[in-house]
């Protein structure tokens, strides 16, 4: 029905033709702006966008009763240069690796104070989540602490100078995986998928999201906040600086990551995948890789490196198969 009547404006942030209940939080004039202007993120920063999208939705979902715990990382650095803060929510930062543990503590404190209705969101980058903070995170998961942990994944340690993390994709150039030798860039067969690991913990809710699909992202935050216990949201946020992309193209690359199958969007509850975001016609991975300087060595002066591009395509194809990203005809999400 809505497709028939709203041929433009289904994917847009707002839509003047539709009832405001269909609008995203981001379309609202009085949106919380949890992360406000004046922060020092780079031009076209995907993480700044992702953090505002997620926390604004969390503020709405909890009617403003939310405390945010931040790991060290780009997000913390650019939003809280002392003495200024860009946060318009209660916000606490401790160390790089302990955001999950601090969040556990905040949730316990709220229980002890008799205000368990005040909810806790922890957030960090892929470094603070998949590498340094993973032990604390796993503990938070297995104890089923009442925390939503959000990882903004820009696929490397960006603010320290673009070093590889365990979320860096194969072949990507970083400061620690330089373009040198027979196999330039990050090594194939390394890294880990924390969303899958979170699912394996059997926690209440796990989802991946992308800043390019705002309606889907906000729905996932609302869904996450409807559960109690440990929850995990992994948001894909392109980084113009680390990826070597144009600032204005941040959402183009975010979209292509999803449309190629490189970044699968799915939801799971209590250990099982419950829903996948369907892509109608997957684009070749090559379309996603092109235009990113970190993958430029795949398209060198001797022509594209077909073998290594094919190896990346195989990763995307595996995602498509694993999560059923391409819906059967006539059944699109």
């Amino acid at each position: 029905m809505h497709k028939e009547f709203y041929p433009k404006g289904v994917k847009t942030v707002g839509n003047r033709l539709r009832d405001p209940t269909f609008h995203t939080v981001q379309a609202q004039e009085n949106r919380p702006n949890a992360l406000t202007s004046g922060h020092r993120a780079c031009q076209g920063c995907g993480e700044a966008l992702g953090a505002r999208y997620v926390i604004d939705a969390a503020v709405r979902a909890t009617e403003g009763k939310v405390v945010v715990v931040n790991a060290t990382g780009c997000l913390e650095v650019f939003s809280s240069q002392s003495p200024e803060s860009a946060w318009q929510v209660p916000w606490v930062h401790s160390l790089f690796g302990n955001a999950a543990a601090v969040a556990t503590g905040v949730a316990a404190a709220m229980r002890a104070k008799g205000t368990p209705d005040i909810r806790v969101v922890a957030q960090g980058g892929d470094g603070g989540t998949t590498d340094i903070g993973f032990g604390a995170l796993s503990g938070m998961f297995e104890r089923a602490d009442d925390v939503l942990y959000v990882c903004y994944d820009n696929e490397a340690y960006m603010n320290t100078g673009v070093q590889r993390s365990s979320a860096t994709p194969p072949a990507a150039r970083t400061a620690t995986t330089p373009v040198a030798g027979q196999a330039p860039g990050n090594v194939f067969g390394t890294g880990k998928s924390v969303p899958k690991l979170a699912l394996a913990h059997g926690i209440a809710y796990v989802a991946t999201a992308s800043i390019a699909f705002l309606h889907d992202l906000e729905a996932k935050v609302f869904r996450a906040m409807s559960f109690h216990g440990a929850r995990y949201l992994h948001v894909h946020v392109p980084c113009p600086l680390g990826w070597g992309t144009q600032p204005e193209d941040t959402l183009v690359h975010a979209r292509n990551a999803v449309y190629s199958g490189m970044f699968p969007l799915f939801e799971g509850e209590y250990g099982h995948v419950t829903r996948a975001f369907h892509i109608e016609n997957p684009i070749p991975v090559e379309m996603y890789l092109k235009g990113q300087r970190r993958f430029a060595h795949l398209f060198g002066k001797d022509g594209p490196n077909a073998e290594r591009i094919q190896a990346l395509q195989a990763i995307a194809d595996a995602h498509i198969a694993t999560f059923g990203l391409v819906a059967p005809q006539g059944d699109h999400a």
Binding site: V13, N15, H23, Q26, T36, A41, R52, L251
Partner: peptide, 22 residues
């Protein structure tokens, strides 16, 4: 409603939403 509104704002709020700097 099939019109793209080429070159003229149709109040979709997308620019308002996607600005990382509000």
């Amino acid at each position: 409603r099939r019109c793209f509104s080429c070159g003229n704002c149709f109040m979709c709020d997308t620019c308002y939403g996607v600005c990382p700097d509000n």
